[in-house]
Amino acid sequence: MEKCMKRILNYQIEKEWEGESAAAFLRAKGFSRHILTHLKQTEGGICRNGSRIWLSERLHFGDVLTVTFLEERSSENIVPVPMKLDIVYEDEDLLVIDKPADMPVHPSIHNFDNTLANGLAYYYESRGEAFVYRCITRLDRDTTGLLLVAKNMLSGAFLAEMGKRREIHREYLAIVTGKTEAEGTVDAPIARVEGSVLERCVDFQRGERAVTHYRTLEYRDGYSLVRLKLETGRTHQIRVHMKYIGHPLTGDFLYNPDYRLMDHQALHSHYLAFRHPITGERMEFTSQPPWQGLWEGREEDGEETLKSCHCSM
Rank of each mutant, 00 (worst) to 15 (best):
K3M: 10
K3F: 08
M5D: 10
M5T: 12
I13W: 15
I13T: 11
K15Y: 11
K15T: 12
K15F: 11
E16N: 12
W17S: 11
E20F: 14
E20R: 13
A28V: 12
K29Q: 15
K29N: 11
H34T: 15
H34Y: 10
I35G: 06
T37H: 14
T37E: 14
H38F: 15
L39Q: 05
K40D: 10
K40Q: 12
K40H: 07
Q41L: 15
E43Y: 12
G44T: 14
G45Q: 01
I46N: 00
G50R: 08
S51M: 14
I53S: 02
W54C: 13
L55N: 06
E57N: 11
D63S: 13
V64T: 15
V64S: 09
T66Q: 15
T66F: 09
E71R: 09
E72D: 15
R73V: 11
R73N: 08
S74W: 06
S75C: 07
E76D: 08
I78P: 01
I78F: 00
P80V: 03
I87P: 03
I87Q: 00
V88F: 01
E90S: 06
D93A: 03
D93F: 05
L94T: 02
V96E: 00
I97M: 00
D98H: 02
A101F: 09
S108A: 01
N111I: 07
N114A: 04
T115I: 08
L116I: 03
L120K: 01
A121V: 03
Y122K: 00
Y123S: 04
E125G: 01
V132P: 01
Y133R: 03
R138L: 07
D142F: 06
T143L: 10
L147A: 06
A150N: 00
N152P: 09
A157R: 12
M162S: 10
R165G: 11
E167K: 10
I168A: 05
R170Y: 13
E171Y: 12
G178V: 15
G178F: 13
P189V: 05
P189Y: 02
I190L: 01
A191E: 09
G195Y: 12
V197S: 08
L198W: 07
E199M: 07
R200Q: 03
R200Y: 00
C201T: 11
F204L: 08
G207R: 00
G222D: 04
Y223R: 05
L225K: 04
V226L: 03
R227S: 10
L228W: 05
L228Q: 02
E231M: 13
T232F: 08
T232E: 04
G233A: 07
G233W: 10
H236S: 01
V240H: 01
H241F: 02
K243R: 06
Y244C: 05
H247Y: 09
P248A: 00
T250D: 08
D252N: 05
N256I: 11
N256R: 08
D258Q: 13
Y259G: 04
R260N: 11
L261F: 14
M262K: 05
H264T: 07
H264V: 05
S269I: 12
S269G: 11
Y271H: 10
A273F: 02
F274T: 02
R275S: 15
I278F: 03
I278A: 01
T279V: 05
G280N: 02
E281R: 08
E284I: 11
F285V: 03
T286D: 03
W291E: 06
Q292C: 10
L294P: 06
E300F: 13
D301F: 13
D301G: 06
E304P: 07
E304F: 13
T305N: 14
L306R: 09
C311Y: 09
S312W: 12
